[in-house]
Amino acid sequence: MEELELELKQEIIKVLNLEDMTPDDIETDAPLFGEGLGLDSIDVLEIIVLLEKKYGIKLANPAEGKGIFRSIATIADYVSKNRKK
């Protein structure tokens, strides 16, 4: 799981252009939105594209993603259970 979490941090830094950040700057359990990394609604959509492209997971409705996108840990958990590639 730790490996997947690290990979997700690297991918998210890349697709969201979080310049000047390293995986060490993102806490695995910290909230990604609001007070945490401060990601917004377009970032969520971009992470949905990432999940489809890299792991073959299709998430049609962003509303489903509320629980999934809480933190790196919750995304990693969801990916490990649903990945198709």
Partner: peptide
């Protein structure tokens, strides 16, 4: 084909 929402904006 993975349309990027942030690129589209």
């Amino acid at each position: 084909y993975y349309p990027s929402p942030s690129a589209f904006i």
